[in-house]
């Protein structure tokens, strides 16, 4: 048993580093990354931009790609305008859903956007998914004519679906619409419903409510 554990540790080690941009690349060719890469030039970077398949997502959802340098006010101005206009979509339907995706250092920003939008537009159901995104990079050596080096790196990414229509509460990562008045105590109904863990933050009248959907363990603290 011990050996097995150690073995898995070894396997995960190459992927283990933290930072997204520094995450150790899976090298297609063997040159030592530290020594060689300084002279190498990245000539292309392609990433898989498809949205993570979330059950319950409509095909024509607005997709917001949050990057490291994106301005939250720009993203939110656009997204909240689209979400708040009723029935004035080009196709004549109101926008019911929006997907936010972000990877690497853009993950935090993605979550912040979602959290702010949830406060702006009340009653949004949420499903969050985590995954690794693969990025292919082609690097060119210092000598002209030297064969390029292809690198595949994986970076952590998040994909969050916000929907005005109810989503499947059994879906992993589902969050029901937030209670707007955060200082209000959880109603007895929801306590009975038992899909809530309340986490008292202790701060004045602050309380985080996160629904982890654990029907068998109710922890009301």
């Amino acid at each position: 048993k011990m050996q097995a554990t150690r073995h898995t540790n070894n396997i995960s080690e190459p992927l283990m580093q933290q930072s997204t941009t520094l995450s150790p690349p899976v090298l297609a060719s063997p040159p030592s990354p530290k020594l060689g890469l300084r002279n190498f030039k990245r000539i292309s970077r392609t990433e898989d931009s498809s949205v993570y398949p979330i059950p319950g997502r409509a095909p024509d959802t607005l997709h917001m790609r949050v990057r490291e340098g994106s301005k939250i006010r720009n993203l939110l101005r656009f997204a909240s305008a689209r979400m708040q206009e009723e029935g004035r979509d080009s196709s004549g339907r109101a926008l019911r859903q929006v997907v936010f995706t972000g990877s690497g250092r853009g993950v935090t920003k993605t979550i912040t956007c979602v959290e702010i939008l949830k406060r702006k537009v009340a009653g949004l159901h949420q499903v969050s998914k985590l995954y690794y995104k693969t990025v292919n990079e082609v690097w060119e050596g210092p000598q002209q004519g030297a064969p390029g080096m292809t690198m595949q790196r994986t970076i952590p990414a998040i994909c969050i679906l916000l929907s005005k229509d109810p989503l499947d509460p059994q879906e992993p990562g589902y969050q029901s619409p937030q209670i707007l008045n955060r200082s209000a105590s959880i109603s007895s109904d929801e306590t009975k419903n038992s899909s809530f863990i309340t986490q008292y933050c202790g701060c004045k009248n602050m309380k985080i409510v996160c629904s982890f959907d654990m029907p068998q363990h109710v922890i009301i603290l």
Binding site: V114, E115, K129, P172, G173, C201, I208
Partner: peptide
């Protein structure tokens, strides 16, 4: 293993 992620906002002082 499966993952279920939830997001929240934390107030800091």
């Amino acid at each position: 293993l499966q993952l279920a992620a939830n997001t929240s906002t934390v107030e800091l002082v």
